[in-house]
Nucleic acid binder design. Structure first.
Lengths: 211, 211
DNA sequence: ATTATCTATAGATCTATAGATAATGC
DNA sequence: ATTATCTATAGATCTATAGATAATGC
């Protein structure tokens, strides 16, 4: 998705555009219902791409949807990452990641809907927030910022809780999701060993200058 | 699934048997891959049921898989519930629910695989462990056993963490899942406001006489 | 000239139903 | 006699490909 590499000629750009249109259509479907049973014909139609072109880029629907999920997760992770640039304290990074995810729900609802409709295992396996949180947990333990029994368990709880937060946003629109994210960050930081006061201060503090 | 009602005549029992065979086949598929694109023919074949019989019981595949998920979640919730009979302390109930879920992974792996392959929203919406944990959280807050900022957030974290625990069992077979569940219970009880010592004692204590 | 896209279609598969068969109730 | 199951099949849909068309490079 992030077209960081400038493609050399018009051929390649056109090809990349077709592929991207297919991926975007697949992302829309993942966000809307998560139901991947739409026909290739319907997907190509939604992408405004000739039916046969699909096979120029993907071997199967499964293939496309796998790429589409990875694409969304990568964008998710990078969006959070760049907004946390310069934040070093792992506690602040974790809290910031949760709270920024809540803001992404407003600005990039498609990504959050995709998260909701995906299996936790697939989300965590990818390049989303999960590997970034893992680094924060490890670093926090190494620097004694966190006093936690087991990093694997702590990370599992964080991943699951993040998913549950996003799910909360989707299923209960009346909830103030920014508030919910801050509260979630607070209880999770406490879980990681910060005192209630510390957890409160970090979770309710200003949300990084970079935002 | 729990055939609590004795059906009056052989007709109804035969009919119920056919339906159950279809539901069991659907549960198998949900557990194996979660891929609901198998044809009705294939499902009926797996259930060893005539193809047309499907339509005597369900209007669509979607229908069947919805029932199958509910069926598994109901069994899950009841299995935990009966093993927690007589346990009154909400902290013990929550810890017990997590730890017993880990044991169910050994004794009823199908249910746990279904959980892993399902969306969190669907799991929590159903009649599984989620509504039971909600009661425990409410009761624990009412009795001041838990000092937690927000019950909705706490419950979300619990639901998500439970899912993550099951996911851990599926994706990393080398992990001692009983240990992991106890550790998860410990950190979550701490999150709910118990002191580290209390949380440790409750989470590592004997797992209810009823088991 | 080369490459990607688009159109048309063959063949496979899937859904839903209609009618035949088998099991049970009374 | 009634009801459920099973078998066979019509019609719809879907996948994958082959060949025609359009766009670009050199």
């Amino acid at each position: 998705m992030p077209m960081s590499v400038t493609l050399s000629n018009r051929f390649e750009r056109r090809r990349a555009g077709t592929r991207q249109a297919l991926v975007r259509a697949a992302r829309q479907i993942l966000a809307e219902s998560g139901d991947t049973s739409a026909s290739i014909q319907a997907i190509a139609g939604r992408a405004d791409v000739g039916f046969g072109s699909f096979y120029n880029h993907f071997d199967s629907k499964r293939d496309l949807f796998g790429v589409a999920l990875e694409d969304a997760m990568e964008e998710f992770g990078q969006a959070i990452d760049e907004r946390l640039h310069g934040v070093d304290d792992p506690a602040e990074r974790l809290a910031g990641g949760l709270r920024l995810s809540a803001r992404l729900a407003e600005s990039h609802p498609e990504i959050m809907r995709i998260v909701c409709h995906s299996e936790l295992g697939r989300i965590c396996a990818g390049r989303g927030l999960a590997p970034r949180m893992r680094l924060d947990v490890e670093q926090g333990i190494a620097s004694d910022r966190f006093t936690v029994v087991d990093p694997v368990i702590a990370l599992s709880a964080l991943n699951g809780s993040l998913l549950a937060l996003v799910e909360l946003w989707l299923s209960k629109p009346q909830v103030d999701i920014d508030q919910a994210a801050a509260t979630m960050a607070e209880v999770l930081l406490h879980m990681l060993g910060l005192s209630p006061e510390e957890a409160h201060d970090v979770a309710r503090g200003p949300l990084s200058a970079a935002v």
